[in-house]
Simulated assay, not measured.
Amino acid sequence: MNEPAELDLPVEGGTLRVLRFGEGPQTALAAHGITGSGMSFRAVARHLPDEWSLFAPDLRGRGGSADTPGPYGLDRHAGDLCRLAEHLGDGRPVALTGHSMGAYTALKAAARRPGLFNRLLLVDGGLPLPVPPGADPDAVLDATLGPALARLGRTYGSDEAYVDFFRAHPALGPHWNADIEAYVRYDVTGTPGARRSKVREEAVRHDGRDLLTSAGSFGAALTGLGVPARLLHAPLGLLGQEPPMLAASVVEDWTGGPGRLPAELVEGSNHYTILLGTAARTVAERFVALGG
């Protein structure tokens, strides 16, 4: 497939790097996960019909937007998505999706400015996460994100060493493909012999604390959502095994009844391969169908 065009589009206080996949007139906007980049939507974009263009920003503190100034936080990212939707839609609503933290960000954007969007697809995220009372959010992040956080403080002798780190990840290595490799190589930067991730750890920790302490705002957004929405969720989690990112009890609380959020379990996927594996076709198909 053709690699994406790279755009720098204006947001408050600077610009965001935005990856454009496709050349069609139908516009989609996609928000990535907490340590990811817009390249995480490469596989989904390939499975969209030719009349679509998918715009996937690197959120502040990540990818080509690593140097875009803060403050960080999900409200800030949601404001950026709204600004991009205004710019890209040119007076027409755009389709919106988000994965993991990006699902929470997309949910906030759709709740804030529903007129900017004609649909919302949440991918393995967007539902309020239960956090034990008194728990330290940073400790929860360390326990939950594991290898994803560990790589941010390290340097690597070469790009191949960085790729090898990801190949050893239990959720990615067994499913390795060209989309995963493109995602990993897009993330690497730094000087020869000291290569590192583009992602800023301070942005991840700020956004992670925000996500873990904002359950009430996500619940309110879901309850009052004014655009057609759907949830796709994976049966396996961040390490390619149970528990999933979204526990069955959490999904059951927010989906399945009259007036509730429609949901679908995407069998055979984990938290990452739901976007970067064969399940990407399902994500693309449901995204298109949601506007029908």
Rank of each mutant, 00 (worst) to 15 (best):
Y72G: 05
E285W: 05
G126M: 12
R286C: 02
V250N: 01
R20I: 11
A284M: 05
A66H: 10
G157M: 00
V283Y: 05
S40N: 10
P130S: 12
K108C: 06
L238M: 15
L265S: 14
L261S: 11
A5Q: 14
G79H: 05
P114Q: 08
A229D: 01
H87A: 06
Y183R: 12
V199R: 09
A139V: 07
H32E: 02
L265H: 02
F21P: 06
V266L: 08
A135E: 02
V266G: 08
G125S: 07
A203Y: 13
G79Q: 09
V123T: 04
G157H: 03
V251Y: 07
D58P: 00
A194L: 13
L122Q: 03
D8T: 01
A220I: 02
S217Q: 13
P57W: 11
G208Q: 10
V250E: 00
D179M: 03
G226V: 01
R196H: 15
G157T: 08
H169M: 07
S197H: 11
L120W: 13
A43N: 10
T213D: 05
D80C: 11
R154I: 00
L276P: 00
L225A: 09
V11S: 10
D67S: 12
K198T: 15
A56I: 06
V184H: 04
A263W: 03
P132V: 12
A78Y: 01
A95K: 11
S53H: 04
G64F: 09
P69N: 08
Y186F: 14
T155C: 03
L246T: 06
N177G: 13
H87K: 05
L232R: 11
L212W: 12
G38C: 07
G259N: 12
S269I: 09
T255R: 04
T105E: 13
A31D: 09
R17N: 14
N118C: 13
E202N: 14
A45S: 01
F117L: 01
A229F: 03
R113G: 00
T15I: 00
L265G: 04
E51A: 14
G268K: 14
A280C: 02
T155A: 05
Y186A: 15
A178T: 14
R195N: 08
D207C: 14
H271M: 05
P228H: 06
V266T: 08
A284N: 08
R286W: 01
Y104W: 08
R83N: 02
N118H: 11
